[in-house]
Every structure is written in C-alpha cells, then in structure tokens.
Amino acid sequence: MATETLELEAVARERVGKGAARQVRREGRVPAVIYGGKQEAESISLNYNDVWKMYIKGQFMAKVIKLTVEGKEHLVVSRDVQVHPVKDTPIHIDFLRIAKGDRVRVHIPVKFKNENICPGLKRGGVLNIVRHDIEVWSPPASIPDVFEIDLAKVEIGESIHVSAIAMVEGVAPVIEDRDFTIATIVGRGPAGGADEEEAEGGGADATQDKDGG
C-alpha cells in the first residue's frame, strides 16, 4: 500500500485568467488551484521543474501531496492535470483538499505479472487490456500504488474482472453496479480480438465521500 506523501511548495496567485496564467508559465511556473474541504478556492503557482520531476515518475494522480503555500500546509490530491497539446507537459493543475474522514477518488494503475508463464499467452494468445487503471474511492492513508494481476493460470478465452483484485478495507471501485472487465486473453486470427467494454456513462460527479456517507 502507498504510504509515501509527496511534497510541493507553492505561492499564492493574485491575478487569475488566461493572460495571468500565460505570464506564470513564462516565469517557469505552473498555475494551479486548490479547492474543496468547504473552503474557498485558492489560486497558486508551482515551480515547473518540481512538478515535472514528479509528473514523469507516474502516479501523480494517485498520491497524497503535502502542499505548502507560503507556510500554510494543505493535504491534497491531484484531481486534474491539463497538459500541453504538443509537448504533453503540465500547464495547469487542480488540487482537491483532503479533510479528516474523507475518502478520495483516484485512478490506480493496473500491472500484469507472470506473462512469461501465462498458458494462454504461451499458446499464442494476446493480452487485450480493457482498462489500464481503475478508479476507486480510498482513504488517503490506504491509496494503493498499483493493482497487480497474476496471469499465471489464465487461458485463452478467459477474462479478468475487477472482483479478482483483493482490495483492502475502505478501498472500493467507483463503478459498483457490475463486475467490469479489466483484461482478456484472446486468440489470434480473424476470430480473435475482444470488444472493449462500452464507454462508461453516468459516473458520479462527486470528488469526495465522507466515511459512512
């Protein structure tokens, strides 16, 4: 389970809007906003190099961050990272405050192991990944680093569903109404291939969930 808390420092931004954001970027910083926790939204900026070093390591969206704004500490998670359409670099970040008793909504990456001994793959099958990450509700202290799926006994034609993942207490998929598919082993050839699940619709808009709520 994830125990690491990332740390970033920021400064408050007095000016907002597209023009002000462009100026912040020219100064080598990333504009951002902190919201939630029944407090007013706060516009800030962060050092671009500090953000980039964390961003390229991955899991930026699945880590608790201690964000210090001019001496005041906030516990937050990244809710949205806007990236440059060409360079794929962060140009704006939305942070969500974490209050005591909250669960947070995060995307956890999926990792597959034992592909080298998977019977379905050894017989010529192909791993068709339907979901590269799973969105879950989780207490901040229990956010998983990754969901690992063992392929050691998976045959051609078999599917792996979210129910195959053992989640600790307090961690649960955002989608609760069905046992959705994460991956399948499909055969090669004209008959091979698997239809990916239909796009999800009607997902919850909430970004925080109180324990017991």
Rank of each mutant, 00 (worst) to 15 (best):
H161L: 11
A141W: 11
D211F: 11
R25K: 11
Y55I: 05
A32C: 04
V77F: 10
R25S: 01
P139S: 11
D179V: 06
A21S: 12
V104P: 03
K57E: 11
C118D: 04
Q208G: 00
G28P: 01
T68C: 10
E73A: 14
G19P: 05
F147Y: 14
G17K: 03
P139M: 10
H84D: 14
G193D: 13
I149Q: 12
N114W: 02
R22C: 00
E9S: 11
L121D: 02
K72Y: 04
R123T: 07
A164K: 14
W52A: 02
V30E: 09
V146C: 09
I129Q: 06
V171I: 15
I56S: 05
V77K: 14
E14D: 13
G71N: 08
E169T: 09
H74G: 01
L46V: 14
K66Y: 03
A2F: 04
G36N: 08
L8T: 08
L75H: 09
A10G: 11
A21Q: 00
D179P: 08
E135R: 15
N114L: 02
A164Q: 12
M61F: 03
V130M: 13
V86L: 12
P140E: 12
I175G: 02
E197I: 02
S138W: 10
R178A: 02
M1W: 04
D179W: 07
I165R: 06
D80H: 15
E158T: 03
K57M: 00
G213Y: 09
K18L: 00
L121A: 04
K113D: 01
R97C: 06
T89M: 10
E4A: 10
I160S: 01
D177R: 08
V106Q: 14
F180T: 12
F180Y: 15
G192A: 09
M167I: 09
E176L: 03
H74N: 13
K87A: 05
M54A: 03
G36I: 09
K53T: 12
R97D: 03
A172V: 11
G17C: 01
Q23F: 00
G193I: 14
I160P: 04
G17I: 02
A12Y: 07
G17M: 03
A204W: 00
N128T: 07
G101L: 03
